[in-house]
Write a protein that binds this DNA or RNA. Structure first.
Length: 288
DNA sequence: ATGTCGTCGATCCGACGA
């Protein structure tokens, strides 16, 4: 598979973001996009975006419920074996539209919108932890190697991922159980590619609409791209598209964009190595 | 920055969720 640009973006209503979303796709030209909080039914999403996305070459897997939640995958490198939700996962009380998975360009991609949790004392918080455990089980069962799990995790993995530790005392997003649930997910073999790329930098993906938070960079890093080891090794570039958080009518989240180099052992047919590499050791083709 | 934003119900604002 050739190089792939993968992005994740919580759009906070696809309908409200329609002009910006389409403009952003044209500008950044991602091959695979994980969307969250589309806040549309499948029918409404198709009505608004079916034609413009098809025009741009994207296949679409939307999993929505209407007013709340809603996730989608857009891909122009193939979109197969779609799975909606987390099989056997928890509900609140019904299973919500918070995950959609498909195979795109040899990657098993899941777009996730992890429950917010609201407050550590709220039942929604327990639901959040259960949901994360179900996600972990799902990734483990499917195998992490080709996996990309990207989206709004509603968890800041570590203290540097929030603008102020004090401001989040007693709040969700930073509690040890949430971070442990994320750590358990990573332990299946996933890498936090943003932090690996920017180990010591201040990197946020979400800024509250209130109080000029964006311009003061009072944000959090809660939108994550987690990738299996073989995928993470292909990382060529990774950045937060802060441009998309500026201007009129932005989402409160910025997209995260990951560029992957061509897979070293692609399955796109016979690869004839240049003569200089013809005798490279370990070059035998693995079946897949 | 408890001065925002989006959604919906049944309006021309107030609730709720984030």
């Amino acid at each position: 598979m050739a190089g792939v640009r993968l992005a994740t973006w919580n759009v906070n209503s696809a309908k409200a973001r329609e002009p910006r979303l389409l403009g952003w796709l044209d500008e950044r030209a991602p091959d695979v996009v994980c969307l969250q909080e589309t806040k549309l039914s499948d029918e409404a999403f198709d009505e608004s975006f079916g034609a413009p996305l098809a025009e741009r070459g994207y296949a679409v897997a939307h999993h929505g419920e209407g007013r709340w939640n809603g996730v989608a995958l857009l891909s122009r490198v193939g979109l197969d074996d779609v799975e909606e939700g987390l099989p056997g996962g928890p509900g609140y009380p019904h299973q919500e539209a918070r995950a959609v998975t498909a195979t795109c360009g040899g990657l098993r991609v899941t777009s996730v919108y992890v429950p917010n949790g609201r407050d550590p004392a709220d039942p929604h918080y327990a639901y959040k932890l259960e949901w994360l455990a179900a996600l972990r089980d799902r990734v483990e069962a499917a195998g992490a190697d080709s996996a990309v799990v990207a989206g709004d995790f509603n968890i800041a993995p570590a203290d540097p991922d929030v603008y102020s530790v004090e401001a989040f005392a007693e709040s969700t997003h930073v509690t040890p159980p949430e971070r442990e649930a994320l750590a358990a997910l990573l332990k299946t073999g996933l890498h936090d590619v943003t932090r690996e790329r920017w180990p010591d930098e201040r990197v946020f993906t979400y800024w509250d609409y209130r109080g000029g938070a964006f311009h003061q960079d009072r944000g959090m890093r809660i939108d994550l791209v987690l990738a299996g080891e073989p995928v993470a090794r292909r990382r060529a570039a990774l950045w937060v598209d802060r441009q998309a958080r500026k201007g009129t009518g932005p989402s409160d989240h910025a997209p995260v964009i990951l560029d992957l180099d061509e897979a070293p052992d692609g399955d796109i047919g016979p690869v004839v190595p240049p003569p200089s590499l013809g005798a490279k050791k370990g070059g035998s083709r693995k079946k897949s």
